[in-house]
Structures are given as structure tokens and as C-alpha cells.
Design a protein around this nucleic acid. Structure first.
Length: 429
RNA sequence: GCCGGGAUGGCAGAGUGGUUAACGCGCGGGCCUUGAGAGCCCGUGGACCUUCUGGUCCGCAUGGGUUCGAAUCCCAUUCCCGGCGCCA
């Protein structure tokens, strides 16, 4: 959510920034918002005057009654004012609702360093790491590799749950857990607190962390309950301190969330249909930071570096892109993606998303900070999030990059200690 | 799930239908002091208007209701505590 005061005081700045996203509806909304807000303030002043009048009459009545006198005409006057108040209150409430709706829909302001662009094709490559593997044999994709080694069962998952679900089996099931353990151990060393959050969240909390459009396209809802399955542990971590005031000395607060993630993938028909690259359910370790505004840019780089380091320890070739204005999403002010090399697709694909959400989520959620106990709140915190390891896509990358001519797969050295020193995935049917 | 108790500022905690959220702690500023502390004084939720001096309204878990008037009475919801039940 943007600061309404900033919008009032500096509408041009906000407008020009929003214009970079290339969403005409947002500019329209901003105009409507400014108009409604102006009307609302006028009405509020009128309403306050009426309430003041009523209060005066009420005081009169109290005095008269205390003195044991008749107050019928005063009561009648108060009732008359009440009617006007009820009418105006309705208008004011409607205007407040509208203002709130607009504010909840307007996206975050973009950082200056975000490149202009239309879609993912315009993302700017910042760096590459590792060498793309050369194979002197015909390579397989991750699905065939896994099927041939009896590591995955997609057909039966389809039977019981539908498309985009899977059973992981054997060493790949272990690999999934190893990746989690590996990420958590590495992040814990860096001072991140491991968190296993609730996997279901109430709507009110969820509205604070994400765009409203995501509810239909992304989130699964529990029937007859005000509960949504989380799409990432970013969400329960961000909402953790909803309506609280954090202490400056406790920041930056660094968390490492561990959870299964559930996504409808409603807008992705026909994309990545085979295998486990894009699924309704996967496991992920997520980095999350609450910090002071002045620290967020620096910490954003730290999150990126942590994520990259994990991929480097897994020896996975990858590149980092600066996500452009057309592809960045509603809540981020700046976003990096890390894309790992996927041999069977002969290209880089997203495995990490690393965002600085500045004060956008914090304002929606009401998360502020104070200098010390007893001092008044100083302002809203900044929030940042970044994938550490998403197991599904990382497994795809490991299987494809580490495949051998005989169809077996070498397990990255960094993961072996989490798998009983296993070196290869080689189980045949 | 059932029965009972509860939710008031950053914290602790009064107020139980009639203008005012008491007292305290903490925090900020000032006086005093060589400095710190103590002591004393002022301030310390949010919004809107404003002639920059102030003014008004809202705020006692949330949403409704009763009333001229609600922190206070009624209803619903959420969460917390205790007891019972169920349960991996």
C-alpha cells in the first residue's frame, strides 16, 4: 500500500512512477483515488461539525436531567442531528472503503534501478556463473531421467489429485529433504532463524501480504473456512508481526521459512505441463527480512548473494537478472531472479525470486518499528524476501545438469552428507 | 466441541450509562548540575481542518444493536486463560 500522504502531497511523482509499469488502469485509479480522497476530507469535516453539535446538545440534556428538569425539546433536537449524521456517515464510510480499495490495488513504487521493459524478455542479465555443461551423449529431460530411475510417479498422482501433482520416490524423495536441510543449515550459520509457519492463513492477513488478484489465480481456499493454503512461507512470515511495533534493536530480523507451497497456477495453462517444474505443490526454504528503511537496499543484495551461494555450492550454472518494469509484480519495488541452466530446455529458467518490497507490505500489515521500549513508532519497516531453495525446480536442475551417459545422476557434493553420503542416484526399475 | 473467566495507550492498571481514558512505569523535551543521577515542570494513540494559533472528531479486541448519550447494557465474531471432552 502506498502512503496516502505522499499521494496527496506529491501526486505527480507517484503518477510518473506508476506510469513506468505500463498499466493505464493504475493511472486511472490514482486519479479516482485523489478525487475520492478530496471529497472524503470535505465530508469528514462536515461530519465532525455535526457530531460536535450533537455532543453539545447531549451535554445540555445531561445537565437538565441532573437538575431534574424537562429535556424533551433538546432530545428532539439531538434526534434531528442524529439523522443527518447517519446519512453523512454512510457516505463517508463508502468513500473510505473506496479509498482503501484503490490503495490496496495500486502497486508499489519502483526503484530507479528497475529497467524499463514489457515482459520477461526485457529483464536485464546482470551476471552469469558457472559453465554450461557439454554432453557427448544424447541428454534426457528430468522427467525421463526420474522415471527411468524409479524416482517419480506422475501418473498415479494424476489419478488421485490431478495434473501438476507428483509422487517423489526413493533417492529423489531424500534429495528433496536434503535440499531443505542444506539450505537451513547454511542460513542458520548466517544468523537466520528457522521458521515452520502455519500453512493456512485467514483472508485478512493474506490481504496484507499479496495482491488481491492472487486470491483467484493462485490460492487454494479451504471450503467453508476463512482459510487459504499458503503459496509460499513468505506470506505467513510477513504477516507474523501484523499490527505490531518492532524494536529497532531487534532488526534486521532474519528468518528462514520452511514450508510446502500450494499454487493453483491458474494462468499457466499449457506451460511446463510435463514433469515437476511447475506444480501445485512443492517445498521451499524462503529467506525473509524485516529491517529499517535505510537498510533494505543493502540487505536485498545480501539475500541475492545468499541464494546465489547456495546454487554455487550445488554447482548449478545460473545467471542473475534484474526484473524489468513489465514483469516485476505488484508488491516489489525491485526484484532479482536467479535462473538456473536447464540442459533439456537449453536455457535458463527461474529458480529464485528475490524482492525488496520496501514499506509496501508493512503498511498494508501495519508493521512499524520504534527506537526503544516506550518511544513512539518511527515508521513502517521494510520487508524483503527471497527464495533460498525451491526443491522442485532445483531437483530438475540437479537431475538434468548432473546426468551421466548411463542414465544415473551424480549428487552434488554439498548434499551428500544429508543423504548418508550417497553419491549417485542410480536405482533402476 | 462444551462450561467458566478475560481483552482498555509502549507496559502495568482504574473507570461498570452523563462532557475529561485516573494514578504509575517507560519514552521525549526543558529546568537544575562540571557531567551523570535524583528532583521538579511540560509532553507522550489516530484522523481531519487550520489564519501556524489552535479547533473538531474518532479511539477501550472486531462487527452490529439499544439510547438524546456506551469503555460501561444487549447480540454475533476473533483471540487469550482455566476446566471438561475428543485426538496424532
Amino acid at each position: 500500500m502506498l502512503d496516502i500522504k505522499l499521494i496527496r502531497e506529491n501526486p505527480e511523482l507517484v503518477k510518473n512512477n506508476l506510469a513506468k509499469r505500463g498499466i493505464p488502469e493504475a493511472i486511472q485509479m490514482l486519479g479516482d483515488l485523489i478525487a475520492v480522497d478530496k471529497e472524503w476530507r470535505l465530508n469528514l469535516t462536515k461530519l465532525n461539525e455535526l457530531r460536535h453539535q450533537r455532543k453539545q446538545v447531549t451535554i445540555e440534556i445531561a445537565k437538565l436531567k441532573k437538575a431534574g428538569k424537562e429535556a424533551a425539546s433538546e432530545v428532539e433536537r439531538a434526534q434531528g442531528i442524529d439523522e443527518k449524521i447517519t446519512l453523512l456517515e454512510k457516505q463517508v464510510t463508502e468513500q473510505e472503503q473506496k479509498t482503501h480499495d484503490y490503495l490496496m490495488q495500486l502497486p508499489n513504487l519502483l526503484d530507479e534501478s528497475v529497467p524499463l521493459g514489457k515482459d520477461a524478455n526485457d529483464n536485464v542479465q546482470i551476471k552469469t556463473w558457472g559453465t554450461i555443461p557439454k554432453f557427448n551423449f544424447p541428454i534426457k529431460n528430468h522427467i525421463d531421467l526420474a522415471l527411468d530411475l524409479d524416482q517419480i510417479d506422475i501418473e498415479r498422482a494424476g489419478k488421485i489429485s490431478g495434473a501438476r501433482f507428483f509422487y517423489l520416490k526413493n533417492q529423489v524423495a531424500q534429495l528433496d529433504m536434503a535440499l531443505i536441510s542444506f539450505a537451513i543449515e547454511e542460513l542458520t550459520k548466517k544468523g537466520y532463524t528457522p521458521i515452520i509457519p502455519p500453512y493456512l492463513m485467514k483472508r485478512e492477513a493474506y490481504e496484507g501480504v499479496t495482491a488481491l488478484g492472487d486470491f483467484a489465480d493462485v490460492l487454494y481456499k479451504a471450503e467453508n473456512e476463512d482459510l487459504y493454503l499458503i503459496a509460499t512461507s513468505e506470506h505467513p512470515m510477513a504477516a507474523m508481526f501484523m499490527n505490531e511495533v518492532l524494536k529497532e534493536q531487534d532488526m534486521p530480523l532474519k528468518l528462514a521459512g520452511i514450508s510446502t507451497c500450494f499454487r493453483k497456477e491458474a494462468g499457466a495453462h499449457g506451460k511446463d505441463t510435463r514433469g515437476i517444474f511447475r506444480t501445485h505443490q512443492f517445498n521451499k526454504v524462503e529467506q525473509f527480512i524485516f529491517c529499517k528503511p535505510e537498510d533494505s537496499a543493502k540487505l536485498h543484495e545480501e539475500l541475492l548473494q545468499n541464494a546465489e551461494e547456495l546454487l554455487q555450492k550445488l554447482e548449478l550454472p545460473h545467471r542473475v537478472v534484474n526484473v524489468c518494469t513489465g514483469d516485476i509484480g505488484t508488491v516489489a519495488a525491485k526484484k532479482y531472479d536467479i535462473e538456473a541452466w536447464m540442459p533439456a530446455q537449453n536455457g535458463y529458467r527461474e529458480v529464485v525470486s528475490c524482492s525488496n518490497c520496501t514499506d509496501y507490505q508493512a503498511r498494508r500489515l501495519g508493521i512499524r518499528y520504534r527506537e526503544k521500549e516506550g518511544a513512539p513508532p518511527k515508521g513502517f519497516v521494510h520487508t524483503l524476501n527471497s527464495t533460498a531453495i525451491a526443491t522442485g525446480r532445483t531437483i530438475v536442475a540437479i537431475l538434468e545438469n548432473n546426468q551421466q551417459q548411463d542414465g544415473t545422476i551424480n549428487i552434488p557434493k554439498a548434499l551428500r552428507k544429508y543423504m548418508g553420503n550417497l553419491e549417485k542416484i542410480d536405482r533402476k526399475r
